[in-house]
Design a protein around this nucleic acid. Structure first.
Length: 424
RNA sequence: GGAGAGAUGGCAGAGUGAUCGAAUGCACCGGUCUUGAAAACCGGCAAACCGAGAGGUUUCGGGGGUUUGAAUCCCUCUCUCUCCGCCA
């Protein structure tokens, strides 16, 4: 969430940013937040004064009692007892104001970075650059679901039998290809200096709030009510929560972590061609990269992450483009996001395979992830993350783009991982 | 799943009703000394909120209660450890 300091210090800029993100009633909401904050501050000042007096009196009573002056002590005691009621009231008022403020603050999205283009929908996203050759497929090219069947790589029906739609079973060279891609991505991340972590797939409520999945996307996560745990929709959640309630030393930054995990998403409300084949699944594999950085350096980190992801796609020899998301398409918690899409010639559409974002201090504020520099002051970090990469659509584009009459040709970079150079 | 013990500052660890935001040790930072370092000595060293500042308030796992006053007593939740059972 935004910090109160951000809102008070740069009120106009925050409102302008929210408007750019098409957040309704930006002024009214911000004013309301500030009003709650004022109320909180005023009440706390009053409460502090009264508590201070109470504390003094209590000490006095202690001293008098020791000296055996019972009557004097009793007199003060009665006086102090009267405070108790009004203290309770003040405290309740203060807590209410703070809670009101927080609840409202939770509904306010992050402010977009100045370089984020104005726009409402994905139509308004800006293509940064493009790579590879999107139009090199033969006329009779098959979509990946047909290829998966032809070469017996993925069994969607079997997944339906075991679990339901959106839970495919990978078989033979298909399963091997998944594992090869995961290992390839992890090794590339390690080479780029990301420290590998393996994290839980089930997280508690606090972690859900920490990265902003809760309360915003409650319905998107699988929830185990018995133990009140959530299945992770991305490794971002457990990995970033490593740094919840942590004060880092500036010398540790930037922190660079990578993690492989299975990801689970309910994807309620999806339909049609969006869910065909591997396009949208309830369970899928992903390698995630996460960075914690200083505000001064976070945009440099963002550039490095973009280059890293771009390098992966190039090594897989897939046609791609990088989009700078417009203000209306940037996610709730993100300040700036670049989407990577690979082209699926057989489906004649672009498939999103990665999303690289800088959350600035929005996520860190909820996480209470701070660092101390030379000035010894705890400052909120910037957090960033990106997929590097999500497997299913890479797999889809991979099968479609590398299909030849002889079979699916494995690009050079991946052959050490697959152990074969063609699927036929 | 059953029984018991525990949770205090970066770490270790005292503290069982007021003098405790908290002894002591280690770590860390600054200084003296030294050509430099080590040792020794001196000083500093938690966070959040309010305040221009002085200063004030809150926090001893979380929440609630008793009391004029709670790290300390009571209730409750969470977590950790030990023993037993079960088990990849």
């Amino acid at each position: 969430m935004l910090t109160i300091k951000q809102i008070t210090d740069q009120k106009e800029a925050v409102i302008a940013g929210l408007k750019k993100k098409h957040f309704a009633d930006a002024e009214a909401v911000i004013d309301q937040i500030l009003a709650f904050n004022d109320k909180r501050k005023k009440t706390q000042a009053q409460l502090d004064d009264q508590l201070a007096e109470g504390k003094k009196a209590a000490k006095q009573i202690g001293m008098l009692m020791k000296q055996g002056k019972q009557e004097e002590a009793t007199a003060i005691r009665e006086k102090v007892a009267a405070y108790k009621e009004s203290n309770k009231e003040l405290e309740a008022t203060m807590n209410q104001a703070e809670q009101d403020m927080k609840e409202l603050l939770y509904t306010v999205p992050n402010v977009p970075h100045e370089s984020v283009p104005e726009g409402r929908t994905e139509e308004d996203n800006v293509v940064e650059r493009q790579g590879g050759d999107p139009a090199s497929l033969p006329e009779n090219a098959l979509p990946h679901w047909d290829l998966a069947k032809k070469y017996d790589l993925i069994d969607f029906e079997l997944g339906v039998k075991i679990s339901g739609a959106g839970f495919p079973v990978y078989k033979g060279k298909g399963a091997r290809l998944q594992r090869a891609l995961i290992n390839f991505f992890m090794d590339e991340a390690a080479k780029a200096g990301y420290a590998e972590v393996e994290v839980p797939y089930l997280v508690n409520e606090a972690s859900g709030y920490g990265t902003g999945q809760l309360p915003d996307k409650e319905g998107q996560m699988y929830h185990d009510a018995q133990d009140d745990l959530y299945l992770i929709p991305t490794a971002e959640v457990p990995v970033t929560n490593i740094y919840r309630d942590v004060i880092l030393d500036e010398s540790q930054l930037p922190i660079k972590n990578c993690a492989y995990s299975a990801c689970f998403r309910r994807e309620a409300g999806s339909y049609g061609k969006d869910v065909r084949g591997l396009n949208r699944l309830h369970q899928f594999n992903k390698v995630e990269i996460v960075r914690i950085d200083t505000p001064e350096h976070s945009y440099e980190s963002l550039d490095e992450m973009i280059s890293h992801v771009e390098g992966l796609i190039e090594k897989l020899e897939l046609p791609y483009r990088i989009l700078r998301l417009c203000s209306g398409d940037v996610s709730f918690t993100s300040s700036i996001t670049f989407d990577f899409e690979v082209y699926s010639a057989a489906q004649e559409r672009w498939l999103e395979v990665s999303s690289v974002s800088n959350f600035e201090s929005y996520q860190a504020n909820r996480l209470k992830c701070r660092y101390k520099g030379k000035d010894k002051k705890a400052t909120l970090c910037h957090t960033l993350n990106g997929s590097a990469l999500a497997l299913p659509r890479i797999m889809a584009a991979f099968l479609e783009n590398h299909q030849t009459p002889e079979g699916i040709v494995i690009p050079e970079a991946l052959r050490p991982y697959t152990g074969f150079d063609i699927i036929d």
